Simulated scan of single mutants.
Amino acid sequence: MKTKLLYQTNSYTYECSAKVVAVSGDEVALDATIFYPGGGGQMADRGTLSWDQSAYQSHIIAISNRNGVVWHTLDYLPPHSGTEVTETIDWNFRYRSMRTHTAFLLLCSVIWREFGVQVSGGQIYPDRARMDFAMEYLEKDRIVELEQRVNAVIEADHPIHTYMLPREKAYALSGLVRAKMNLLPPHLEEIRMVDIVGFDLQTDNGTLVNHTREIGGVQIMRSENKGRLNKRLEIVLKDAL
């Protein structure tokens, strides 16, 4: 049985009940999870599982999605299969990840519109994010302009909606190139779409805010040449400066 991915429909859920459906060593699989297992450059969530009316609690030290089943690695002897547990997210970590990840997508959109190039890699950290773009030149004055454009989109407070679309219908949409859909696992029958209303449409599986203004603002802190056709930008949320 595949795990129901609750974070895909509501990134703001920070606590829920679930049932243990399988146990393997110090790992448990649940029928549903609010924990993002990591991927696409975004770090896995942090938090705890508790059971028996909170008599037992374990920190989640790792999360992985294997063939549609999300396994949660615990730092305490895991509960038996069939146990009802309470999942609790480290909300401060989650919300900062949501804001940074959404800013990541906005920068990808702005650079695609400006230069027509894809993001070739990236990583989101607790306090910043870095993105690599397949481009040869990126002058300093253009970097300032990119930062201004991203912040203008943030300030415009675009709503952000997500929904699932059959894979063949997603592939049929034109201009959906920022996410490199050809790299998506072939077993995925549905693709999660992210509609930044009035601005852009992308594919993404991570956690996101509901309105762009929640990001608060970003600053491009650094730029690096990482090869002849690879430029790296590092961004931070303004309230982290």
Results as ranks from 00 to 15, higher is better:
Leu176Glu: 06
Glu190Phe: 05
Ile61Gly: 07
Ser109Asp: 12
Gln53Lys: 08
Phe115Glu: 15
Tyr163Leu: 06
Gly82Val: 14
Gly116Ser: 04
Leu146Ala: 07
Gln148Gly: 15
Glu155Val: 09
Gln53Thr: 03
Arg167Val: 00
Pro79Ser: 05
Asn67Asp: 14
Asp157Ile: 01
Ser97Trp: 00
Ile124Leu: 15
Glu155Thr: 06
Asn151Gln: 07
Tyr163Ala: 06
Asn65Leu: 05
Leu106Cys: 11
Pro159Thr: 10
Val153Lys: 03
Ile143Ala: 09
Ser120Arg: 03
Glu136Pro: 00
Ser54Ile: 02
Arg94His: 08
Arg96Met: 10
Ala55His: 11
Gly68Asn: 02
Arg130Gly: 11
His101Asn: 06
Gly82Asp: 10
Leu138Met: 09
Glu147Asp: 05
Asp127Ala: 03
His158Gln: 01
Ser81Tyr: 04
Met181Leu: 11
Glu155Pro: 02
Val69Leu: 06
Leu188Cys: 03
Gln148Asp: 14
Tyr163Asp: 03
Phe115Met: 13
Arg113Met: 05
Asn67Ser: 07
Ser81Lys: 15
Pro186Glu: 06
Thr86Gln: 02
Ile154Ala: 07
Ile60Ser: 11
Arg142Tyr: 01
Val144Ala: 14
Arg96Tyr: 03
Leu184Tyr: 08
Lys140Phe: 11
Ala170Thr: 09
His158Glu: 02
Cys108Asp: 05
Ile60Gln: 08
Ala129Met: 15
Arg94Val: 04
Tyr137Ile: 15
His161Phe: 12
Glu168Tyr: 08
Asp141Thr: 13
Arg167Asp: 03
His72Asn: 13
Val110Tyr: 12
Glu147Leu: 08
His187Ile: 01
Ser58Glu: 09
Thr73Asn: 11
Gly122His: 05
Glu189Thr: 07
Leu188Ile: 00
His187Gln: 10
Trp91Gly: 06
His80Val: 12
Leu183Pro: 00
Leu77Trp: 07
Val69Trp: 07
Lys180Trp: 00
Val85Asp: 00
Lys180Tyr: 01
Leu106Met: 10
Arg130Tyr: 10
Gln148Trp: 11
Ile160Cys: 03
Arg149Thr: 13
Glu190Thr: 11
Tyr163Ser: 07
Val69Cys: 00
Glu155Gly: 04
Asp132Arg: 04
Tyr171Arg: 10
His161Asp: 08
Thr100Leu: 15
Ala134His: 11
Ile160Arg: 02
Phe104Gly: 12
Pro186Ser: 09
Ala62Glu: 15
Arg167Gln: 03
Asp90Cys: 06
Asn67Pro: 02
Ala152Val: 02
Glu190Cys: 02
Ile89Gly: 03
Cys108Glu: 04
Ala55Gln: 15
Met164Arg: 02
Ser174Lys: 14
Gln118Tyr: 10
Met98Pro: 02
Leu77Met: 13
Glu155Lys: 14
Ser81Asp: 13
